[in-house]
């Protein structure tokens, strides 16, 4: 990448699960940068490895999961190698996370105030009283009306949008450098989603943190992110600034994804779907993982997996079309759009 001030650099991350059907390589070649103060999006279809990528960063994988390779560089430290003790310090203090369904990550038997205080007491050494005062401040920061009253509420007494605000308040408790938001608005209605997106943007500007925003909604990406990593079958297939991704996407999968999207803001004729299905994690194609569905696939694609290559503008792409080895035509037709091959 063009040199930026990156707080986090993920390089060729590989995470596997052992299951009774054999090894599942859930993440198998994920690289991206998180520049300071910026928002990067991770998009991809269900099962493409978005959540496992973020859980790997925090080392919160399930028992049967393991980071098998690659690096996660955070301010000079490789998070794949640091001790569990160091990881505990980082979680919550420097890198925090919010999840898709706030109800499952809030404890139903404690009040909102008790839960936020918990984090403040254990990570910042506050006493109970200080922590309660700070909790009220945080609830106010995330736009919860009458925070003095709500701090005593139990999660079930709050609406979905409010619970998500509480989750955000908790994740901000320790002023993190990086906030990982995994589908934070997917379970919410659009008018509530608009409130939460506005809140995250506003907080980011005020607090100067970097955000990793995981979503399958390309609209949300276009509106909130500066950079975006597109994932397919456990790999990053394209990483670029968002203008390039939406105006001149390079990877056939990215092009196909944008062409399949029904838009509410413009009239479209027929949608152009990507044919077929995502490969099962147990039967990954040997070559390019998109080859069985790709309209431009060649024998080379089917035989050999392309590496993630950096282009002149600093964007990254995993596709043979943009390499010297491309065996096909110079002008490649991808879902009705033309891309110029490098070879």
């Amino acid at each position: 990448m063009i040199s930026k001030d990156n707080v986090l650099e993920v390089r060729n991350l590989q995470t596997s699960f052992s299951t009774d059907k054999g090894e599942v390589r859930a993440v198998d070649g994920v690289s991206f940068d998180v520049p300071k103060g910026k928002t990067i999006g991770i998009v991809g279809e269900s099962g493409s490895g978005k959540s496992i990528t973020s859980l790997s960063i925090l080392r919160l994988l399930a028992e049967n999961g393991k980071i098998k390779g690659g690096e996660i560089r955070y301010k000079g430290e490789d998070l794949t190698k640091v001790s569990e003790k160091r990881m505990r310090e980082l979680r919550g203090n420097e890198i925090s996370m919010i999840f898709q369904e706030p109800m499952t990550s809030l404890n139903p038997v404690y009040t909102v105030g008790q839960q936020i205080s918990e984090a403040l007491i254990s990570h910042q050494g506050m006493n109970k009283k200080q922590a309660m005062v700070r909790s009220v401040e945080l609830l106010k920061l995330v736009g919860i009306p009458s925070p003095e009253k709500r701090v005593k509420a139990y999660p079930f007494e709050l609406s979905g949008g409010m619970r998500q605000r509480v989750m955000i308040a908790m994740s901000l408790a320790c002023d993190p450098e990086i906030l990982i938001a995994d589908e934070p608005t997917t379970a919410l209605d659009v008018t509530i989603q608009a409130q939460i997106l506005e809140l995250i943007k506003d907080l980011q500007e005020r607090l100067g943190m970097s955000v990793i925003f995981i979503t399958h909604d390309l609209g949300v990406v276009a509106e909130t992110c500066d950079y975006v990593a597109v994932m397919y079958a456990g790999q990053v297939v394209e990483y670029s600034d968002i203008r390039t991704l939406f105006k001149q996407p390079k990877h056939p999968y990215s092009i196909g994804l944008l062409n399949s999207l029904p838009r509410h803001d413009i009239d479209q004729e027929k949608l152009m779907p990507i044919k077929g299905n995502v490969p099962s994690p147990h039967e990954m194609p040997t070559g390019c993982r998109f080859a069985p569905r790709c309209p431009a696939a060649t024998d080379l694609c089917r035989a050999k997996m392309p590496e993630l290559m950096t282009d002149d503008s600093g964007n990254q792409i995993r596709c043979w079309i943009y390499s010297d080895e491309w065996p096909g035509e110079k002008e490649v037709n991808v879902y009705g759009e033309t891309r110029i091959a490098k070879g």
Partner: peptide
């Protein structure tokens, strides 16, 4: 409000949002 709340997959379209 409902229509204006939907994110548009086009980074060049900055729009007026009515946040309810």
């Amino acid at each position: 409000a409902l229509l204006s709340a939907i994110p548009v997959p086009d980074p060049d379209k900055k729009k007026e949002r009515i946040v309810l």
